[in-house]
Each structure stands twice: as structure tokens, then as C-alpha cells.
């Protein structure tokens, strides 16, 4: 996993609650057996005026001029500002793959769906939960000033606005550690191999039917 570096990120506002994973990456793109290349289809149905197909050259497709990520001022954004319950719906990890591939390193919202939350951190994306009114304020500031950037410092768990306001955020210690170090958590878990084996043996002895194969 890519290490998380401190961001001086351009912010793009997506003003809509309950953004689901079908919206982040529509199902026709889940047919890929790769992990990369989903960025061009991020928010496909909002971004383009036609229906996208997997493997298609997206540079020729008609863009929706009203969609925020198509506006010139938000090109190169690495921080996505969103509304409540972002990432609800399916467990598709293609959603964070698409966000990361597009260039987003941080998503800020009042709340996130559980499975998406897990998936994002495993792909080097920092999700920051802030109170609804703080998010509302950021939306107003972003929309009011072009080139609005946030300084996102994971080490200090702190966001600094261009106006110098400091917003602290919470993140659990393990996720923070993995993100900062770019760690693969399978490797970390396998350090506990002996504990897993010991548990498995005890578990099998207590409930052998859980290990049974079809008769």
C-alpha cells in the first residue's frame, strides 16, 4: 500500500448525501479482474452524458458540464468533501480503487458507511469524519474561493484551512499506523500465526461441526 503523505490538497465539493457505491463506480466496470484503471469511470453516470462501457476510450465521451469534477477549478483535486453516509451500498472495493486512481487521497464527510470505511483505509485513502456543521462551513468556503486547499496532516490528526482555522480529527491508532507506514495488514496478521493456530485447534475441539465437509 502507498504511504500516506501530508497533503496540501485542492478540495472538490460533492454536495449530495448518501452517495452510494453504485454511483461511485457503476456495476459494468466491476467486470474487470484488475485493481487499477477505474479512475476514468469514477462517478461515471454523473460525469458523462452517455452510458459508459468497460474498456471504452473515455476521452471521446461527452462530459456533463454541470458535474463538479468536470469544472476547471477542481482539476487535480486530492481532497473530496462530501455529505453524510458517503459510500453506502455494496462492498465493492472498486469504489476506493476508483477514488484513489482518480487521485483522491482524502475524503471528508459527516459520516461514512461501515464497509466503505474499511475498504478505503486499506487502499491508502484517509477518511475524515467531521461534525455536520464543520463540513457545512467547509462547503461554503470551498465554493466561495477558487483554488481552495486544505492542509491535511495525519501525523498530527489536524486539518488547517487557508484561513488558518485548525480542525482536529480522530482516527484509530492501527489504521493511522498502517496508512503512515504503507503497511500490508496480511503480513501483520501473520505475525500472530501461532495464536491463530492455537485458537483454531481449541475451536475445532469445542465445535467440530463447524469444520465439517459435505457428507
Amino acid at each position: 500500500m502507498q504511504k500516506f503523505e501530508r497533503q496540501q490538497g485542492l478540495v472538490a465539493p460533492l454536495d449530495r448525501a448518501n452517495v452510494d457505491t453504485d454511483l461511485i463506480i457503476p456495476k459494468q466496470f466491476l467486470k474487470s479482474i484488475q485493481r487499477s484503471g477505474f479512475g476514468v469511470n469514477l462517478f461515471d453516470e454523473l460525469r458523462y452524458l452517455d452510458e459508459g462501457q468497460p474498456g471504452q476510450d473515455c476521452s471521446q465521451r461527452p462530459l456533463n458540464p454541470d458535474f463538479v469534477l468536470n469544472q476547471a477549478r477542481y482539476q487535480g483535486a486530492s481532497v473530496l468533501l462530501a455529505r453524510r453516509n458517503f459510500g453506502c451500498g455494496s462492498s465493492r472495493e472498486h469504489a476506493p480503487w476508483a477514488l484513489a486512481d482518480f487521485g483522491f487521497r482524502v475524503v471528508i464527510a459527516p459520516s461514512f458507511a461501515d464497509i466503505f470505511y474499511n475498504n478505503a483505509f486499506k487502499n491508502g485513502i484517509l477518511l475524515i469524519t467531521l461534525p455536520e456543521e464543520a463540513v457545512g462551513r467547509l462547503f461554503r468556503e470551498v465554493e466561495a474561493s477558487e483554488g481552495y486547499r486544505l492542509d491535511v496532516d495525519l501525523e498530527q490528526q489536524r486539518i488547517t484551512t487557508p484561513g488558518g482555522e485548525i480542525l482536529e480529527f480522530a482516527v484509530d491508532a492501527f489504521r493511522k499506523h498502517c496508512l503512515l507506514e504503507g503497511l500490508d495488514d496480511i503480513g501483520i496478521t501473520l505475525q500472530d500465526e501461532d495464536a491463530i493456530r492455537a485458537f483454531e485447534e481449541k475451536h475445532r475441539a469445542a465445535r467440530p461441526w463447524l469444520f465439517r465437509q459435505a457428507g
Binding site: 462492498s91 475498504n119 496480511i186 496478521t189 491463530i196
Partner: peptide
């Protein structure tokens, strides 16, 4: 029972465990 993402599918295949809260 709950859903997991693809990284976790790999994690379960490799370790028979999940990291959870």
C-alpha cells in the same frame, strides 16, 4: 455474518481471520 471488501477477501484466504472492531 457480514460483507467484506476484496482486500479482506485476500486477508481471510491467507489468514482465516479478519481484523475487526
Amino acid at each position: 455474518a457480514h460483507g467484506i471488501g476484496t482486500s479482506e477477501v485476500e486477508h481471510v484466504l491467507a489468514t482465516q481471520c479478519l481484523l475487526a472492531q
